[in-house]
Every structure is written in structure tokens, then in C-alpha cells.
């Protein structure tokens, strides 16, 4: 069975004026285990809509999306999202932002620290410096901000 299956998915957005807008029509594809799958297309073709459906932020108008056989109904940590606009929490420091997902999982503290160091090491984030790690995300340059967002969603599997 494929890991991700998208079957006959259509999505209609309703604009503020109440007009229906067809964003996706009859989309079908499957993604296998360990496969790296890329969706490319011109701006406005429905990529973000499709990703929102896969993430569980929206529901399809028709069709179904499944992960591991389970229907997608809500967001979850097993379908981590890295946002285009970083979506960092300004009221948390950089390291608190990175640890946010780990805390939601209620992992033991030393396990959280181990994962934190591991992914910081992988990414080579400028925020690996202890001084800037305690600072606010607003102080980060955008390049390092993206490198804060990535370790926040490490693969937990």
C-alpha cells in the first residue's frame, strides 16, 4: 500500500463575495515509502491548496487523501509542515521555537536535548551559538530564520 494516496480530489474555494473558485479538479497521485516527491507549477495552480489538504488544514470538496491508509482529517505531527513564511513564534526564543514540537510530544528532557543538538548540528544554524539562541526570532536574519524553521519540524519517525 502506498504511503500517501490522493484520490479524485477536488477543492472549491468560496471567495469573500461568495463566488465559488475551482482550485483543484480531480487530482490523483500516490507517493511510496521513502520516495521524494516534488510538486511544481506556475503560481496560482493550486500547489499550496494541495499541501494544505495534505497537512489537514483544509478539507477537500470531493475525494479523499490518505496517509498510511488513514483518512486525513486534521493536522498532526506526523505530517510536519515547513512554512513558506517561516511561521516562527515571536514570543518564544529561537531555541524555544525549535523545541516546541519536541515538547508537544512529551519526550523526556534529555531526549529533547539530544534531538535538539543533533538537528542544530545538521543544519549549521547560526543560532547554534548560545548567545543568539536565547534571542528572539525577530532578531534573526531571514536566512537563519529558515534554518530555525527546518529543525523545528524534524522527522520524528
Amino acid at each position: 500500500m502506498s504511503q500517501v494516496s490522493v484520490t479524485n480530489v477536488s477543492k472549491v474555494h468560496i471567495s469573500i463575495k461568495g463566488e465559488p473558485l475551482l482550485a483543484l479538479h480531480d487530482v490523483n497521485f500516490q507517493v511510496e515509502q521513502n520516495e521524494f516527491f516534488s510538486i511544481v507549477g506556475p503560481s496560482g495552480c493550486g500547489k499550496t491548496t494541495l499541501l494544505n489538504l495534505l497537512a489537514g488544514f483544509e478539507q477537500p470538496t470531493r475525494g479523499e487523501l490518505r496517509v498510511g491508509g488513514q483518512l486525513i482529517t486534521a493536522p498532526g505531527w506526523e505530517r510536519a509542515v515547513v512554512f513558506q513564511e517561516y511561521a516562527l513564534f515571536p514570543w518564544y526564543t529561537v531555541s524555544q521555537n525549535i523545541r516546541y514540537g519536541l515538547k508537544r510530544k512529551r519526550l523526556p528532557v534529555d531526549e529533547q536535548d539530544r534531538l535538539f543538538d543533533h538537528y542544530i548540528g545538521l543544519v549549521g544554524c547560526a543560532a547554534s551559538n548560545r548567545a543568539t539562541r536565547g534571542s528572539s526570532p525577530a532578531a534573526c536574519a531571514s536566512a537563519s530564520a529558515s534554518r530555525v524553521r527546518w529543525p523545528s519540524t524534524p522527522p520524528y519517525c
Binding site: P75, F83, F89, G101, T153
Partner: peptide, 13 residues
């Protein structure tokens, strides 16, 4: 902020 709410949700909140 919608994006922050979604970020929280997708991180398992």
C-alpha cells in the same frame, strides 16, 4: 495569525 495557529497544529499541539 493563521500561519502560527497552523504551525502549532502541525507541530502536534
Amino acid at each position: 495569525d493563521t500561519y502560527l495557529v497552523r504551525a502549532g497544529l502541525s507541530l502536534g499541539a
